[in-house]
Simulated scan of single mutants.
Amino acid sequence: MAYRQPHLVRFLATGAVVGAVIAVLVAALGRDVPYVNGLEEYLLFVLIGGGAGLAVGAVAYLVADRPRLGS
Rank of each mutant, 00 (worst) to 15 (best):
V9K: 05
T14H: 02
L8G: 00
A16R: 01
R68K: 15
Y35T: 15
G15A: 02
R4L: 14
A58H: 04
V26C: 06
F11E: 00
L8S: 03
E41L: 11
Q5K: 07
M1S: 15
L39M: 15
A60K: 05
G49Y: 00
V21C: 08
G50Q: 02
G70E: 07
A55S: 04
V21L: 13
L39S: 12
A60Y: 03
G53R: 00
Y3F: 13
G19W: 00
L44S: 15
F45E: 03
N37S: 08
A55L: 06
L47P: 01
D65I: 02
P6R: 14
N37L: 10
A27P: 05
V33F: 07
G38K: 13
F45Y: 14
V17L: 06
A60T: 03
G38R: 14
A23W: 00
N37W: 13
G70D: 10
A23T: 03
A52R: 00
M1D: 10
A16H: 03
L8E: 03
V46D: 06
L43M: 12
V18M: 04
G38F: 04
L12I: 07
L43Y: 09
G70H: 07
Y61P: 03
V26R: 06
H7P: 00
L8Y: 05
F11T: 00
A58S: 05
A27C: 10
I48H: 02
G70P: 06
D32R: 11
A28D: 12
M1Q: 11
L54V: 02
N37T: 12
L47W: 06
L25S: 05
R10S: 13
A27S: 13
A23R: 01
P6D: 07
L43G: 10
Y61L: 05
A64Q: 07
L12G: 04
V46Q: 09
S71N: 12
G70Y: 08
Q5H: 09
V36N: 09
D65F: 10
A60H: 04
A64V: 06
Y61T: 04
R31Q: 14
G30A: 09
P6Q: 07
P6V: 12
D32W: 15
R4E: 09
A58M: 05
S71D: 11
A28E: 08
G30Q: 06
G19P: 02
L44E: 11
T14Q: 05
G30S: 13
A27I: 05
M1C: 12
L44V: 08
V33G: 11
A55F: 01
L43A: 15
E41P: 00
V63N: 03
F45A: 11
L44I: 08
V26L: 07
V56G: 01
L44W: 14
L12P: 03
D65Q: 06
H7Y: 07
A13T: 09
Y35I: 11
V26N: 04
L62I: 04
R4C: 06
